[in-house]
Each structure stands twice: as C-alpha cells, then as structure tokens.
Design a protein around this nucleic acid. Structure first.
Lengths: 235, 235
DNA sequence: CGTTGAATTGATACTGGTCAATTCTAGTGG
DNA sequence: CCACTAGAATTGACCAGTATCAATTCAACG
C-alpha cells in the first residue's frame, strides 16, 4: 500500500492545471465529479459487483476486504485521500470497499477513465506507476504476513500509517482511524494479539497512547528495527 | 496468479492479425528474441538492479524472492512458461528472479517493450489485464498467508500448481518443480511444517506421493474444501 | 556401496488463538 | 451533572498450531 521508494513520484503530482480538454494528471480525471459522502460502514462497491466505476478518495479512510467462505474477513488494504479504488479491476471488483470513517469521494465510470487514459500519452505511464505501486505494496504485505511476527507486523503497520498520513516527516503522533478489529483482520491476527502487542510496544517505550486511537511513536528508529526494516542511516 | 473472473475480458481480444509491424499479442513482442538458458540457481536479475529488461519464460520454473534484513528469504511467487517477469517494475526490480529448474526465456528491453505497448491500442489492454491478474494473485496470496492454516495453504498451493500446469483439466498428477524449502518460503512455513502437512494430506487420502516430487491429487473436491475454496458446484 | 544433501519424523518450546472476565469510553437518559 | 448502558479495548488463563532442535530415512550420484 505504501512503497517508500516510489512515493516521491507521487509527490511530484503537479498542482492543478487550468486544462480544458486533456488532463495532465490522473487526479484531474476526478476533479470535476460531484463529491459523494459515505457514513462509516457504508460500502462504495462490493466484491463481485460489475466493476463499473473507479473512485478517488477525497477525505477519510476506507477498508478493502473479502469475506472467506467460512465467514472470516480478510482486509487487503486501506485507502486514504488521493488513493484510487478499482484501478486493477477488470470485469468485477475483487473486493468490497467500505468506509471506516466518514468519507468523501469522487466517481468516474471505468469506461470513461480508461478512454481518457488510453488517449493520453501523459496519463498512461501514470496509471502504470500507480499499478506498480499497488503491486509493491501487495508484495510488502505478503512478506509481512508470511514472515513476520506480531511485534514486527504491528510496528510496520504503525510506521506505514505514519508515513502515509504524516505529510510532515516528524509528527510522530498518529491518529488511527480504524478499530482494533480492522487492524487484526489486516495484519492476520486476532484483536487480542493486536492489543497485547501494542501494550508490549508501549511497555518497551517505543510508543505511547494518548487515547486508544492516538498513538505517539516515541522512538522511530527502534520501531523500524522492530519492524524488520533495514536501517538505511546506519550504512 | 489466476483470476477466473477476469479472464473473459482477454477473450475479447481479436484473433491474431497477419500484421508485419505491429504485434497483436504481448507474446509476439518476445517471439523474435534469442532464447537464453539458465541452470537451476542462476538469477535472471536481482532485487534493486536497474530494471532494464522484461523476460518471458519459455520453459522451466523460476522463483521470485526477496531477502529480508535478517537473512530470511520470502518467495513472493513462481513463474512458469508464458509468464512475463518485470511487468510491474518501474525503476528497479523489486525482487530477485532465479531459476528453479533449467529455464529457457526470451528478453526484451523495458524501453522497447513499453514503446511497443504504448503504441498499440491492441496491446495496452493486454498489459492492464496481465497486471490486474498479478494483483489478483497477490491478493489471494495475502489472504492465504494472513488467514489460512497449514493444510489450507498446502492444499491451495497444490491446486494452484495443478491448474497452472494442467493444461488438461484432469491430470490430477503433478510434478512439483521446487524443493520443500521453496514451498516453505512461499507458504510462510518451515520445511518441517510443509512435510508434516503433506503427510497429513496423504494419510487423509487426499493425495498420494509417486515420488517426492510427484504428487497425485486423489480427491480434488475434498482438497478444494480443505483449501477453503468455495465449492461452486454445490450451489 | 558409501557419501551427501533433501526429506521426513519425533520431542519439546514458543507464539498466537480461544474463551472468559474486566476495564474503558462514548452515548443516553434521568 | 451524574449514573447507566453497550460496545470497544484490554488483560488473564489456558490451549492449539507451528517453530525449533535433533535424529533418522531416503535417493541420487560418484
């Protein structure tokens, strides 16, 4: 969901051009569309629905998930402002997208989106970049789920959230929009394990809780080690 | 790796034109290139190398993996004939690709590949389809690793291999090209757990071993249930 | 045949899951 | 403003599944 090496490229998104006919940026495709609002728990679209639209998140946080045959819920990712949902969908959506917080978003038809992108030599590489970022994020998540233990997963998650929301580099205090259950279903754990792990990180002095949804990262370097991230400063 | 719902879209690609200059199919891009051969263990490219080329596998099996800071190896996928490596790479490769068996492949420069695709209204949707299939596969793997137990993971893996290799639907006897260690690093387990799980499936009569690398799927339906796949016939 | 690395099996330890309280917090109504 | 309530979060005790460590068996190859 977050590929540190690739993020800088996103930042390079130019400020809104006064374009008429040809968008210079993927976001431009959405910018004229009306804002839709969702309350927490409302779905944008559901798994297996025909994939008619793409949406760009303007405000808030969504979860993307699938329900397994036995009822378990697997959250495959969260979406934040600027993210586009449905990019990699072809025929049907492969997951349900649902508001975690109150959400504002803009919608365009998949047909129109792809027509615009397909016509623009500017936009085509931007789409590929986005897809490649999604792939990188998915690979990171595969590694997290396949190889890492509880403290590594939770530390990674918090750092990822911090990078995602912290447009500033230093805030070190992050607002967690989702519930412990959401975190658990994303990290491949139970609520209880997520709780206990947060407690451990707190007791170790790596984080502190302002309230249950606000976490301060006290020692980012130690957290990165805990997360199993190579410390690039130490080279 | 396999997205049944998405495949139909590919079908809509028109039949091969007798074109001279413009390939009608992604594979055409590779078809004129010389064959390269690799011995088991040889790498096609390494993580963090500049992503100069794409390769299409002609014969054999490769693994894609990353080495974590602490030395663990996470295999993110295997590649078989027809697969293209490097599709989602932008600047650098995000994984190492290494031959499992003797491999034959064809290589084109990323620049040339993207120039051809970008120029062809035929090819562009094919690239998107491939990427979307990769995303779907990555999501499946996230779910497997995050939610499923040992027997589910191994059963899923065997079924996936069977679908992949079995151009025929019924063979039920699959040659496993990779070692137990490869399977373990892919499934997020240790060698021992993979072994014990295979033994369990064997004792339960779901599979039998011809030799250590040849597994017969005795009861595909039961395996699918074991894998946590919804039985679509039972509806 | 003996050697060697892969695969399997066994015994035990550890991590995370399950089940059951308990505490916290945001609402709600008195 | 203060209980009261309901759901979320946390903690604890115990259990299950997987890892770890240690043999042992197997199979290809010289």
């Amino acid at each position: 969901m977050f590929s540190p090496d690739l993020l800088p490229a996103t930042r390079s998104a130019p400020p809104a051009y006064p374009l008429v006919s040809e968008p210079a940026d993927l976001s431009q495709i959405f910018v004229r569309q009306p804002i839709e609002k969702l309350q927490p728990g409302e779905a944008v679209f559901c798994e297996a629905d025909p994939a008619t639209d793409l949406v760009q998140v303007t405000e808030g946080c969504l979860r993307r998930y699938r329900i397994l045959p036995d009822g378990r819920r697997a959250i495959t990712g969260f979406a934040f402002p600027g993210d586009v949902l449905g990019l990699a969908s072809m025929d049907q959506y492969s997951y349900t997208a649902e508001a975690v917080t109150p959400v504002k978003l803009r919608r365009v038809s998949r047909r129109r989106f792809h027509a615009l992108v397909d016509d623009s030599a500017q936009l085509r590489p931007q789409l590929l970049l986005k897809l490649s970022q999604e792939m990188t994020a998915a690979q990171e998540q595969m590694i997290l789920l396949g190889q890492k233990g509880a403290e590594e997963r939770v530390a990674s998650f918090l750092l990822t959230l911090a990078r995602r929301r912290g447009d500033t580099v230093a805030p070190v205090e992050i607002e967690i929009p989702m519930s412990r259950l959401d975190m658990a279903d994303y990290l491949g754990f139970t609520i209880e394990t997520v709780c206990r792990t947060i407690t451990k990180l707190k007791d170790a002095g790596l984080i502190s809780l302002k309230d249950r949804r606000t976490i301060r990262l006290c020692n980012v370097t130690a957290l990165q080690q805990q997360a199993g991230e190579a410390d690039e400063n130490s080279v």
